[in-house]
Simulated scan of single mutants.
Amino acid sequence: MPSAIETFSIHASEAELAELAERLHRTRWPDAELVADGSQGVQQAWMRAICEYWRDGYDWRAREARLNQWPQYRTEVDGLRIHFLHVPSPEPNATPLLMTHGWPGSFVEFHKVLGPLTDPRAHGGDPDDAFEVICPSLPGYGFSDKPRETGWGVERIAGAWAALMARLGHRRYLAQGGDWGSMVTTALSKRDPEHCAGIHLNMAIAPPVREDLAELSAAEKAALATMDHYRKYESAYGKQQATRPQTLAYGLTDSPVGQAAWILEKFWTWVDHGGHGPEAVLSRDELLDNVMLYWLPAAAASSARLYWESFMDFDREPVTAPTALSIFPGELFRPSRRWAQRRYCDLRYFNETERGGHFAAFEQPDIFVREVRDGLRAMRSPQ
């Protein structure tokens, strides 16, 4: 007997909000950095400004209502209650589209694209491009249950997503993802090929092989330089979460400033903001909405454990599903078409965009929507 699908809405208690305000008020601040840039980590002046606003200006009740404007549900899959958005389309022939976020993101990343994707007619688009969007929260993230046992890596999540789509009655669907969502989406295409008809990724893992290095284009050299910079200066968070997530979580779960700094450092370095800081692209409220989805459910440990489960075991095997790739210029990994074609055997669409970084749907919703539409439209075309 399939588990029930129950409606859900976000509601933080007054006690939770009062405790957050008290913890913010009592923050014990570290010394400021000794350099004029972010090379020692997120800068204190910016963190102080963000957290003062969080304490004194951020209106969670208004933001909560904004998040609750989209239909949300929970249902038990493989022993966990999975939280998900399920946004219908007014178009009768809309295609089901499963969208998966990553770390340090959440379903908040997709809020600006839900309207255009589900109702293109109302947003100046072609109604033939309409999608019915299903957007689950990863296990241990947001308002999905936290795993109570090991084994909840990318493959098991993909199995849960396949079960979720079957429960919703979708015999044919498309899937989209970035960051961990890219890994889960790729695994889903392999696990459920009879139902998952194709995928769109905005962070594709397709590194060069040895023979590629003999002759590199300027763009490929730049991509390798970015990857080298990531390895040397940006990847410590992943190593920590992959090896000792529990140790890290004590500080992040106890301190809202600690949790915010751990997340917002990545928005500072991974958003395509031209050196002006993430607030040049995302509002302070938007940044804090995402932080709240880690703070309220105390998800520091449970979200980090996905790295412990899967970070050291990335799947780099060929992908046979029809695939569309959008390469955003501020992304951490930017494969060239020739690298991508080697791994994605049925590459239907490949495009390098003009703007955008790691949080593509959040940063550049118009470009992201265009890419999803174009990529999946190309996928539907006869080959």
Rank of each mutant, 00 (worst) to 15 (best):
Phe84Ser: 06
His25Gly: 15
Trp152Cys: 05
Val77Ser: 01
Phe110Glu: 03
Ala36Thr: 14
Cys196Tyr: 11
Glu309Tyr: 06
Asp289Gln: 03
Ala197Lys: 07
Leu288Thr: 02
Leu85Glu: 01
Phe311Arg: 08
Ile10His: 01
Tyr250Cys: 12
Gly151Phe: 11
Leu264His: 04
Ser39Ala: 14
Leu188Pro: 07
Arg284Pro: 11
Leu293Cys: 06
Gly238Met: 14
Ala166His: 11
Phe333Tyr: 15
Lys221Leu: 13
Ala298Val: 10
Ala218Glu: 15
Phe143Thr: 04
Pro207Thr: 12
Val35Lys: 08
Glu234Phe: 09
Phe350Val: 12
Gln43Cys: 11
Gly357His: 00
Ser303Asn: 06
Glu64Tyr: 06
Ala166Val: 02
Thr150Asn: 09
Pro96Ile: 02
Leu376Gly: 07
Leu376Ala: 08
Leu224Asn: 11
Pro147Ile: 04
Phe143Asp: 04
Ile82Tyr: 01
Asn93Gln: 15
Trp308Arg: 07
Glu215Cys: 12
Gln40Met: 14
Leu216Thr: 03
Thr185Phe: 11
Asp56Lys: 03
Gly375Ser: 04
Ala301Gln: 01
Glu317Pro: 02
Tyr250Leu: 13
Tyr73Glu: 00
Gly57Tyr: 06
Phe359Ser: 03
Ser326Asn: 13
Ala218Lys: 06
Ala158Thr: 07
Ser182Asp: 14
Val133Asn: 03
Leu24Asp: 01
Leu325Arg: 07
Gly140Ala: 04
Phe8Ala: 09
Gln259Asn: 15
Ala223Tyr: 06
Leu34His: 15
Met227Gly: 15
Leu325Gly: 05
Gly169Glu: 00
Arg61Met: 04
Met183Ala: 13
Thr185Leu: 08
Phe131Pro: 03
Leu293Tyr: 03
Ser235Cys: 09
Ile367Val: 13
Pro322Leu: 13
Asp145Trp: 00
His86Leu: 09
Arg337Cys: 08
Ala298Phe: 07
Val87Gly: 00
Met227Tyr: 15
Glu265Gly: 12
Ile327Pro: 02
Gln259Ser: 07
Ile82Phe: 05
